[in-house]
Each structure stands twice: as C-alpha cells, then as structure tokens.
Computed example of a mutant assay.
Amino acid sequence: MATASIASPPTASTPSPAAGAWVLGFALGGFVDGILLHQVLQWHHLLSLVPGEALRDIRAQILADGAFHVGMYAIAAVGLWMLWRRRGGFSGTGADRRVAAGAAFGFALWQAADTVLFHWLLGIHRIRVDVPNPLLWDIGWVVMFGVPPLLLGLWLRAHADRGGPGNGRVAAALSAIALLAAPIAALPPGGDAPVLVLFREGIGAPGAFAAVAAIDARVVWADPSGELLAIVPGDRSPYRLIGHGALLVGGSPAVAGCLAWSRI
C-alpha cells in the first residue's frame, strides 16, 4: 500500500513556508546572540546599561537573560508551527531555496532589530559595554553577522526557480537546528567549574550558607549579599538546594543556563 507524502501537492493557493522560515531564522539569530554574547563571551547582559540599583543587581541581570532565552523559545515554537501548517508548499518549485532564504533573512533581521532597537534607541545594552567606542563593535557585529546572511538570502531568492521541486529537507534541517538551540542554550560550561546558586531575596548569608552546609557542599565565593554563591558540590546533588531557598542552580534548564555560564 502506498503511503501518503508529508507535503501535499502545491497549488496556486498553497501558502509559502518561507514565512515560518523567517520566524525561525529570527529566533536563531537571538539564540546565537544569547549563547555567544551573554554566555560564552559575556560581553553584555540584556539589561547591562539600564539604570537603577535594582536592575544592577546580578540576580536581575541573570533573570533577564533567562527571560530573553525563554522568549526566543516561544518565537522558535511559533516558527515551527508556521512551517508545519504550511508544509503543503514544501514540494513547490524552488521551495527549499525559498525556505533557506527566509531563514537567512530572519537571521539578518534579528541583527538589525537588536542593534537599532536595543542598542541605539532603547540603549539597554551594546555588543560590548566595556570598551571606549561601543559603536564600532555594534557596526562590526552587524557587518559580520547581519550582512552575509542578508546577501545569502537575496542570492537564494533570486535563484530559487533554478532549484527544482522541493523535498522539505531544508525545512527539516532548519527545524532540527531550532530544536537543538534550546538545550544548547541551557547547557552548563564544561569542566569542573564551581556551581553558581542564586537564593531567594531575604534569605541572607546565614540562611544561604546553612543551606549549602546541609548538602555537604563548600562555598568558594559569595557576592556581598551572600545570596549568590559559588559552591563545590559534595556527594549530594546541588539541585537539593531548590528545597532550601535556592531560586536557580547553575546548569538547570532555561534561565539557569545563563547562570551556569556567569563568571565569578
């Protein structure tokens, strides 16, 4: 018995899947930003330049970075849903190149939106906040990560009709990359680095140190409040601290991915 294809034959009214690719590309641009700049290089936090004592606190910065990743997850989920809803267009002429072009355009759009809106209009952070001339770093980042995908997208779209019928492989690959980006963003750094633990506000240093002692761990660093600690775990899992007043334990999913990468 013949099996049905995942993609219905395209018709004149079949919507293009490229729109979903735009959204996925936009989300992937955000993931690269968060993973590379917030976590690996640590050139800025999402709210690095926002004034106010409350937002200067490290817990607010880490939570904002985590919320940013959650937002990217949500946008990626919308893009995946749009691709699935428009899977009937996967077999159209040049569909694979149009999907790839959409992803490239979306990636470039994130770089432009981040730079213009967040860096220049709102001023909540820059590519690097610790340099004498942050504008040069902003422009350099756009040139390196925004212009090449834009040019690639223009070339793919201009040559889409030469690509022949699509087979959905580009959409599948793009979906796989988006699905992998979320767990990669939550991975802790390798090696035997101390585990950062963020406790609830008000627990104070005595409560936080007592919680660490309760799981036979050792404190190697503490911020002035005593509520953000770097610990070396003992035989017990550091995640037990969740039951002792900890809000986040470095290495746990989503928002704690940013915590795990933060330097002491």
Score class of each variant (00 low, 15 high):
L152H: 04
A100T: 12
I58T: 05
V197Q: 04
R263D: 09
E201W: 01
R85L: 08
L46T: 11
G166N: 08
A193Y: 01
L180Q: 06
G29D: 03
G250Y: 03
D161W: 11
A182W: 12
W22V: 15
V255L: 10
V142R: 01
V249G: 02
V212P: 04
P189F: 10
R87L: 04
L187R: 13
A230E: 04
L156Q: 08
S8W: 09
R263P: 00
A214L: 05
L83E: 03
L174W: 06
T93R: 12
R86S: 14
L247S: 05
A74V: 15
A19Y: 12
V116Q: 06
S225E: 13
R263C: 01
L174A: 07
H159W: 06
L41I: 09
P165F: 13
R98L: 14
M144E: 12
V232A: 08
V70G: 09
V219Y: 09
G34M: 05
G94T: 08
D223P: 02
F90G: 01
A103F: 05
E201I: 01
W43Y: 14
T3Y: 09
A18G: 04
D161Y: 04
L259E: 00
I6A: 12
S5C: 02
A108C: 05
I124Y: 04
I264Y: 07
G71H: 10
T14G: 03
V99Y: 11
I203E: 01
A64M: 06
M1Y: 06
P15K: 09
R128L: 07
S8D: 15
Q61C: 05
R169E: 12
V232L: 14
W81V: 13
V219N: 11
I35V: 15
A176W: 13
W22K: 00
L248T: 03
W22A: 03
L150A: 15
Q61V: 07
V32R: 11
R87G: 08
A21C: 07
A222F: 11
I75G: 02
